[in-house]
Simulated assay, not measured.
Amino acid sequence: MYITITPQKLGTHFNQSSQDFVNYLEKENEERTLENFEYFFNQTENDIKPDRVVAEIDSNTAKLKRNEPRFYSITVNPSERELQHLKNHPEALKQYTRELMQDYVKAFNREINGRPIRVEDIKYFAKIEYTRRFKGTDREVIGNQPIATKIQTLKDEVYRIQTGTTTGNLKALHDKIKCLELEAPHQLNGKRIVQGMEKPGPQSHIHIIVSRKDQSNSISLSPGSKYKASEVEFNGKQIKRGFDRDYFFSQAEKTFDRLFNYERNFMEHYTSRRDFVKDTSQFYKNLLKLPYPERTAAFKLMREAGIKLPPTVPVNQVQLAYKAFNALKRGVGIAVKSSSISI
């Protein structure tokens, strides 16, 4: 489970409207018939149309300055293994989203009228997307780039011949291009993987637009706060502040596991990814403490994620060689970056 929380920006400035973001989330509907449209939902409603989302998010911005985010985007990315466990069922994803947003409000160290924040206090809209496309930062696209460069050079030469600016053998050039296409190391259904190509397998994920202000449009709730839990004096009163991301990300996994009886592997835990980034020594110790079957499963998940493990890694021994672990660290680091794991 990979979850990111980001304020929506246009370049260096915060978006003043949610219109562009909502339009972006409508891209899958462009390929659907009206009766098969995927609509937004919130905690209590389904089939919410995009114009209502824009209207309610954009009007819920009282007293916010231009340099403050109007809304945040939460992206929930279940892993392929988690989606297979759910059989990629949309109703299960909606159920999980609604439970997740209860974890979200509990992560705030804030009160409304002397009580903890409840999910009814926030304004959010969510939408399920079912496909993903390869980006320029994906390892498959990067791995194919040397071939792509050669192909583009040949295509440029073909264009010059076709426009009469030079002469040459078009058939020979087209034959070279076909050969290069087959040489690309990353293929999908017999075709070279390129940016924009649809990814295979279950790719369902959830986009959530959550307003910076609460339902009353009077209280600011920022999940981007650098404080986990503290108090500050404001107008002579002690005000609680902060958002505990560690709690939110960890609880998100526990909620999924509880709802769907899911058995989470060591490498799927947020705490494992966090320790890898912030406390490599602790990650190393925890990895070595795993029973042999779990440790083997952890390495299997790494390989499935495309992490190149050194062939000398002794997964059935008590200790890993330091050199081998450094190679493993580099591989996991690439995976963490490419997966946009928010920590």
Rank of each mutant, 00 (worst) to 15 (best):
D244H: 06
N189Y: 09
Q187W: 06
N189V: 04
R258D: 09
S220W: 04
K63Q: 12
K199W: 09
A297K: 11
E30N: 12
G331R: 04
R132E: 07
V315L: 06
I161R: 03
K228A: 07
D138S: 10
G236V: 02
K240D: 00
T165H: 02
Y39R: 10
N326R: 15
R245S: 10
A126S: 07
D214L: 02
K254E: 13
R66F: 09
Q195N: 14
F266M: 08
I177C: 09
R32D: 03
L10I: 14
P50N: 15
F14P: 03
I3M: 02
Y24A: 03
Y262M: 00
E80N: 10
I112V: 14
E129K: 10
K191A: 09
D275I: 01
K27P: 03
N23Q: 06
Q238G: 00
H205S: 01
P311V: 02
E294I: 06
I177D: 09
Y262T: 06
Y270R: 11
T153L: 12
Q282P: 05
I117R: 01
N36Y: 14
N217M: 05
I343T: 13
Q152P: 02
Y72G: 03
E35K: 04
Y270N: 13
T296P: 09
R295P: 01
H269N: 11
P7I: 11
P293L: 06
I74Y: 00
Q319V: 10
I122W: 03
P50M: 09
L34V: 12
T4H: 11
G224Q: 11
E183A: 12
G114I: 04
T137D: 07
R245E: 10
G242H: 03
F125L: 04
A327K: 05
L301Q: 11
L180G: 04
L288R: 07
K87H: 13
D20W: 07
R32N: 02
Q282C: 13
I334V: 11
Y124K: 01
I239P: 01
A148P: 00
Y24V: 07
I206L: 09
G143R: 04
H269E: 15
L320A: 08
F37V: 06
V318G: 08
N46A: 11
T97W: 00
D175W: 08
S225F: 04
A321M: 09
K49H: 07
P116Y: 02
P78R: 01
L25H: 06
P311W: 06
Q203R: 05
A335F: 10
H269M: 14
L25M: 15
P223V: 05
Y247R: 08
I209T: 00
M302Y: 15
D175S: 09
L182A: 13
H174K: 14
N169D: 14
D51T: 11
H89C: 15
F299G: 02
F14A: 02
K199F: 05
S59Y: 08
A62P: 01
V332Y: 13
K127H: 05
H174F: 15
K9Q: 10
P78F: 08
F40R: 03
P90Y: 02
N15E: 15
K226G: 06
